[in-house]
């Protein structure tokens, strides 16, 4: 069914339409929450909260931006709220999960079959978690999720000049942290591409 029709149905409290509509975005939302928190436990919990928030707020969606951009805004804001709350409580999601004795894995399924891929995946996630929320958010949106400057300015509710300068600082911060890692050169080998 066409997305606009599904959105109208959702706004008329049709829960079945909501499952159909958001079923198309659940992977995107899970990826986003995973990047913010770096573990499946929090990604699952916050991802579920995010979808519940979308369900409650979908009547506020007015079509001024695309539905996808609006979703990014709602989910990113929830992730940032949660990170700030945890900072106030002075706890760490990862430590919390470890203390409770587990990190639920994503079933028996893993898309990363070789060691290099797994190491690269872990390295990126570790460095992302070392960045400030502001820098982590913009790198997730631009370089991992592939949003353009205009979309990011809508998600973050700031102007394009701010997006550019923040992105520049975030990339530099990521690069510096990456350069201190011993396996950095192996992991990026073969990725240099000239000719912009």
């Amino acid at each position: 069914m066409e997305e606009q029709i599904l959105i109208k149905k959702c706004q008329a409290d049709d829960a079945v339409a909501f499952e159909e509509l958001l079923g198309n975005y659940e992977t995107m939302i899970y990826n986003l929450t995973y990047r913010f928190f770096g573990n499946h436990h929090d990604a699952s919990d916050v991802g579920q909260e995010a979808l519940l928030r979308v369900y409650r707020k979908i009547k506020d969606f007015n079509g001024k931006s695309s539905f996808k951009t609006w979703l990014y805004r709602v989910v990113s804001n929830l992730c940032l709220d949660e990170i700030r709350k945890r900072k106030k409580r002075k706890d760490s999601s990862l430590e919390e999960a470890k203390e409770s004795g587990y990190e639920p894995l994503a079933g028996d399924v893993t898309p990363m079959e070789n060691v290099l891929q797994k190491e690269r995946f872990q390295l990126i996630q570790e460095i992302l978690l070392l960045l400030t929320e502001e820098h982590r958010t913009i790198l997730i949106l631009k370089d991992i999720e592939g949003l353009d400057y205009n979309e990011i300015s809508q998600v973050l509710n700031c102007n394009i000049g701010t997006v550019k300068s923040r992105l520049s600082r975030a990339r530099e911060s990521f690069r510096q942290k990456l350069a201190t890692r011993p396996k950095y050169s192996v992991l990026i080998e073969g990725r240099v591409q000239h000719g912009m």
């Binding site: 992977t27 079933g107 898309p111 790198l139 991992i144 690069r175 990026i188």
Partner: peptide
């Protein structure tokens, strides 16, 4: 450019069934 390429090609996490 290496940094951006690394992030752009980052492997995606597998979707958890409990989610």
């Amino acid at each position: 450019q290496n940094t951006v390429n690394l992030l752009a090609n980052a492997e995606k996490p597998a979707l958890a069934p409990q989610f």
